[in-house]
Design a protein around this nucleic acid. Structure first.
Lengths: 218, 218
DNA sequence: GACAAACACGAGCGATCACTCGCATTCTTT
DNA sequence: AAAGAATGCGAGTGATCGCTCGTGTTTGTC
């Protein structure tokens, strides 16, 4: 990561990105610590009730130091949302092989889409506090939207290969509804005892499966 | 409404409710105005961002006058939640005749349950800002819970008559999931253009219908 | 070792919010 | 009409929050 030392002078535009001037190992670590702390506080308190002082305290630094790395509270949340988006996308791409979609049963397809989302939500409790809450500042919504759009796009393209006879508006609506259902059930899953979760998850999958069958026979 | 003048002296316990001491026509009106104003602000801003000063301004009174009638912000919200609960219950009871449940098709049953909820949500935009938001103070959650419980009880008893062979835990889970689905789709419905709404509503009902069919064949 | 940039601190500023208090006004009762 | 309770006001209080600033400490570079 330190292999470019003075090869950036030629390019003035990205100079601040590739090599600000000198050393940043400590700072880089701090940023990660702050984001981890913010995720923890966010998961416990929700966005509105999360204070920057609480994040700083959780990270073990002073409030002032926090603003050495982030312009304001929203930027911390936006950065975290971006990180989550990347993580969720990665989780999906790892569990999902686009080539063999056609020879999966509907139930298997549902599993392939739902399970990574569930696992991600269980592993990242702070995610849902950041994802499409209605009381968010518009700047943050911009960072949050790509997560939703990427997932929606994936679901729609999946529906398209499985129901080529359906119109795109129809599939769009179906995709949005299915995502809403999973999101709606998510709090129940994450707050339930670990041994209750499979029951809830099975039920959600049954509903989605039934809906897909209805879509096929329509 | 002013037919009890001095017939309350016999009952000491409910004296403050029926006749505090003297005159309250103006005050009674104010309370209604404050609640209406609070509903408007709540619908536009959400619970956390709603300030008591904004409610007072919307009601056309001073912040001080607000506290003549309510102890604090939460009490306003709680009172409003209670009002909503009564309204929703009334809407349901008007649209719902428990006697002829058995000779309705599943689709009709779904309409009977869903339509009043939809109508109520469209007519009372402030309702969803108050209903089971995760960032609410515990005191408010207490006022909000009866709404959910009443609805859940109604749905479950309905499922019980239609699926007597299913266990109660199973029906409980099914009822909760179905309610979650309707609630999850509600923002899409209320924010959509009026001509888009039927499409979304139809789709939600299709999903619920498909799920009920799956529940029957299970 | 000298210098400057990066990093860290924490008291505190300005704004906001829920709520109070002293006082003025309106209404009811006698 | 006089008393007093109900109603109304709005500046102000104390608490909290996001964020800044002056200052001090660490760390890489020469």
């Amino acid at each position: 990561m330190e292999d470019q030392l003075e090869a950036e002078a030629a390019d003035g535009t990205t100079a601040e990105r590739t090599a600000p001037r000198k050393r940043q190992a400590r700072g880089e670590r701090r940023i990660a610590e702050i984001l981890a702390a913010a995720a923890r506080v966010l998961a416990a308190q929700g966005y509105e009730k999360t204070t920057t002082n609480a994040i700083a305290a959780e990270a073990g630094i002073s409030p002032g130091s926090l603003y050495q790395y982030f312009r304001n509270k929203d930027e911390i949340a936006a950065e975290l949302a971006t990180t989550y988006a990347a993580g969720l996308r990665a989780a999906h791409e790892a569990a999902f092989d686009l080539t063999d979609v056609t020879n999966l049963t509907p139930g298997e397809t549902i599993d392939r889409v739902i399970d990574p989302i569930l696992a991600f939500n269980l592993a990242n409790p702070g995610f849902k506090a950041l994802h499409a809450r209605p009381d968010m500042p518009p700047g943050l919504a911009a960072a949050t939207r790509p997560i939703h759009d990427a997932l929606l796009g994936r679901v729609i393209s999946l529906l398209k290969t499985r129901f080529p006879e359906r119109s795109l508006v129809e599939l769009n609506l179906a995709g949005q509804l299915m995502i809403q259902v999973v999101q709606a059930a998510m709090p129940s899953v994450t707050t339930a005892d670990a041994d209750e979760r499979p029951v809830i998850i099975t039920e959600v999958k049954r509903m989605l499966g039934a809906y897909l069958r209805e879509l096929a026979e329509r």
